[in-house]
Amino acid sequence: MNRINKVVLVGGTHGNEFTGAYLIKKFEQYPHLIQRDSFETLTFFGNPKAFEVARRYIDKDLNRCFKIQDLENPTLSTYEEIRAKDINEMLGGKGKSPVDIILDLHSTTSNMGLSILLDNFLHPFNLQLAAHLSLTHPEVKVCWAPLIESRCLQSISEFGFAIEVGAVAQAVLNAELFQKTEKLVETILDYLEAYNQGSISQTNSTLTLYEYVKDIDYPRNDLGEIQAMIHPQLQFRDYEPLNPGDPMFLTFDGKEIVYEGESTVYPIFINEAAYYEKGIAMGLTEKRHVTV
């Protein structure tokens, strides 16, 4: 990337994730907080209709509606499918958008802390930004999930990414996480300003990256009913190692179900409330170290 000209901050993509939604409202009320001299910063509210009723979505998860084939499919006509097409058009079109960076602000009921979800992590710009955030905010975790993120709103922009913060309940504001998210956004904008001014120091560093492997569903019976819960020893332990033989689930009658993989993995989005309907108990990642 030669120069950054336009950045879009998005909140309310999910109507019951209040951290990003109310940050966008704050930035719209106090626009000087996000303005920088060398590029334009715009705000965008993803799903206002779902936000009005404090629901994740009205008909369909908006953040799963941005695959190119779906955006180009004229037969898709739910509220969120139409909204996705409108957003895509307003932001210039996926793959050809004049928006350099889309930053989508989310929250999660999982204990994800401050997490950055990257699309195009292999690009040096993304790696350098992620490494900078890891240094300036040591609690930040960086996750790469390209197959998942390509269907999300931020994928309209080549260098889009998402911030996930948690644990925070749905349709609830947590002041500490709100302030941490705002500070992280501020750091990102300051970095982009420094990038345009050519004042980013080019020093080698090692970035810890959590690469998405697959989703794990809850144990279910033949009727599709959940038969076990996240094990107490795993609950709230996002990004911590899960070794072969470690307990994953606890059945309703008290029996342990252990992880039967062949190597250590690092679960994320453990017991995310919104993922019950998607058949996801957690995502598994592998820990990598990338030289930047």
Rank of each mutant, 00 (worst) to 15 (best):
M1D: 04
N2P: 02
V8Y: 00
V8P: 00
G20C: 10
E28H: 04
D37V: 11
F39Y: 14
N47G: 14
I58M: 14
I58G: 09
D59Q: 15
K60E: 15
L62R: 02
R64K: 11
F66A: 01
N73H: 10
P74S: 11
L76W: 04
E80M: 06
A84G: 07
I87A: 01
I87Y: 00
E89H: 12
G92K: 08
L105E: 02
S110Y: 02
L117C: 13
L117K: 02
L117N: 06
N120L: 09
H123R: 04
H123K: 06
F125Y: 05
F125L: 14
H137P: 00
W144H: 15
C152I: 03
S157K: 08
E164N: 07
G166V: 08
G166Y: 01
L184F: 04
T187W: 01
T187H: 03
Y191F: 15
Y191V: 08
Q197C: 13
T203G: 03
Y210G: 01
Y210Q: 00
E211F: 03
Y218C: 04
P219E: 12
E225C: 03
Q233M: 10
E240M: 10
I257V: 14
V258H: 06
E262C: 01
T264F: 03
Y276L: 13
G279F: 07
K287A: 05
R288K: 13
